[in-house]
Design a protein around this nucleic acid. Sequence first.
DNA 1: GCCTTGCTACTCGGATACTTTCTGTCCGAGTCAATGTGG
DNA 2: CCACATTGACTCGGACAGAAAGTATCCGAGTAGCAAGGC
Lengths: 171, 171
Amino acid sequence: MSRVFWMGSVQHMQMSEGVEWALHSCLNLAWAESGTAVTATKLAAFYGLPAAYLNKQLQALARAGIVASTSGPRGGFRLAKALKDITLMDVVVAIEGPDAAFRCQQILRSGPDADPTVDYRTACVVSQAMSRADLAWRRELAAQTLADIRATVESRSPDTPELTRNRLAAK
Amino acid sequence: MSRVFWMGSVQHMQMSEGVEWALHSCLNLAWAESGTAVTATKLAAFYGLPAAYLNKQLQALARAGIVASTSGPRGGFRLAKALKDITLMDVVVAIEGPDAAFRCQQILRSGPDADPTVDYRTACVVSQAMSRADLAWRRELAAQTLADIRATVESRSPDTPELTRNRLAAK
DNA sequence: GCCTTGCTACTCGGATACTTTCTGTCCGAGTCAATGTGG
DNA sequence: CCACATTGACTCGGACAGAAAGTATCCGAGTAGCAAGGC
């Protein structure tokens, strides 16, 4: 009796959803921009996101030099580079930080035949194998720019640029 | 005044350190095994890990069919497959769960021109791009088996099998 | 002497606390623009 | 009419709570072996 059903794994190792917000916001900035800055509030209203929290993510993009921020009336955010110079990797690093998903804790340090002079982050074979996968991931992210994304979106939905511009221009 | 120094990004999107523990423990099981099971306590003592928590990770490996568990005296864990049939991907999925790192929240659902009939996890261009990177990561993890890891370790440190076996055999 | 039976010690398994990270909110510093005033 | 100081509202920026996940621990269910007792 009382059979136990395994409900499936819980959600592990997920990146912040701020990455998704940041990517879409950058695209919207590219479509909206005609020399004017867009406030975090407007960008958040686009998807019903909490404005203050999106603002936090945009700050991270600003620190990374992806967007530029202006305070005061008529202030807001605008792209600091061309879309073709912004890779997915740039955005992910800006939001999630530069560290690899797999963190080698160097547990071999505590093992029976440990050598204190060795850095197991580079020497440990397990760590090397995991790093290989991380590098493949990063390579793929770095190979795609936001310009590529925009081009694909516009080819599928040609109305998107105008719709977005209008929506952001509206008070 | 009171200049603020940015301390660098905090550590985001890190996978559980249980992955590292699980990988090393599987290798140790392969070296120790001579038909006998090894307890979680012994495996934990190898690196000074909390035994009960390592046990938790080993349970996850057991659910995934990577190791088999036996209760009672002379019980413990032993490999359920050959090392060549265990990929890094298998271990990561067992510990971290099957979900991708990037979770498309389908924020386009809340966008201005949303189509409720569309599943944006597959339709959203941003999601597709992120998935491409995830797939590259998974492909790399699936391409490496624990047998590969063992072979590399043994070629670099030929003493490891015997050292490990002796250490695990010791009371 | 051998079989049966009960017991004890041992191990996994999942339920339970504690810590860190992520998510969300708030208020202050700075800024630009409009407005009113004086020349 | 034009220049300038003042005011005011608006926006980002970082500091401050709440929620969720990761980490660590504990105790119970089950099992295998051992020991004692009976045949």
